[in-house]
Amino acid sequence: MIVRISATDWVPDGNTEHDAVEIARAFIAHGANAIDVSSGQVTKDERPAFGRSYQTPFADRIRHEVAATTGAAVIAVGAIASYDDVNSLLLAGRADLCAVGRTHLYDPHWTLHAAAEQEYQGPGATWPVQFRAGSRKPPAARTDAVRPRLSLLRPDPADQAVHLRWTPTREPAPVS
């Protein structure tokens, strides 16, 4: 069972990160397998301290003070928008999992794109058949050595006005 908690209410006299540790401890003691650590969204008076991965310190604290001794997983959320953020949080031991909600709303294939950019091919990164053509990161610039497939102008300077892809089916009528 996964339980989502609000680590702080971001208001005076509301829940704090100290309370969150005890709330997480109680849920884990009663059978929760993972704690999804969010914050706020409980009152219109809240003043959150938004920023990149801004809720991660709460997950980090719960992971080290509670989950480390119980085996429960901790999920970090909140403005985690890049695979670099995810990798950094996981490798630093700040969380066991990361949830990237708004990122997936913006790009439903975010996980697949992150896998492609890191050249990962394995479980969890299987492209649906109809999207496999997009499974490789497209070239971003000429430095990616993409060769032109056609030349837009004929090599003879006299024919510069004729587009290469235009092939008349019969001789054009003479211009008078």
Rank of each mutant, 00 (worst) to 15 (best):
E17M: 13
E17N: 14
H18C: 11
H18K: 15
H18S: 15
H18I: 13
D19V: 12
A20M: 12
V21C: 09
V21E: 05
E22N: 14
E22D: 14
R25D: 13
A26H: 15
A26S: 14
F27K: 03
F27W: 14
F27E: 00
I28K: 03
A29K: 15
A29M: 14
H30I: 12
H30V: 12
G31T: 12
G31S: 13
N33P: 04
A34S: 14
I35L: 09
S38R: 04
S38E: 03
S39L: 05
S39D: 03
S39G: 14
Q41N: 12
Q41H: 10
Q41P: 02
Q41G: 09
V42R: 12
V42C: 11
K44G: 12
K44W: 11
D45T: 04
D45K: 10
D45A: 11
D45W: 03
E46M: 14
R47Y: 00
A49L: 13
A49F: 09
G51V: 06
G51W: 09
G51F: 05
G51I: 08
G51S: 10
R52F: 05
R52H: 15
S53L: 07
Q55T: 07
T56N: 00
P57I: 07
F58E: 09
F58A: 06
A59G: 02
A59I: 02
R61C: 01
R61N: 00
I62Y: 04
I62F: 05
I62E: 02
I62T: 03
I62V: 12
R63W: 08
H64S: 04
E65W: 06
E65P: 09
A67F: 03
A67T: 08
A68S: 14
T69A: 15
T70D: 01
T70Y: 03
T70V: 09
A72I: 01
A72T: 00
A72E: 01
V74A: 07
V74C: 06
I75G: 00
I75D: 04
A76M: 03
A76C: 07
V77Y: 02
A79L: 08
I80R: 01
A81T: 13
S82P: 08
Y83Q: 05
Y83I: 05
D85Q: 06
V86K: 09
N87Y: 01
N87D: 10
S88C: 09
S88M: 11
L89P: 06
L90Q: 08
L91Y: 07
R94V: 05
R94K: 15
R94A: 05
A95I: 02
A95Y: 00
A95S: 08
L97G: 04
L97D: 05
V100Y: 09
G101C: 15
G101Y: 15
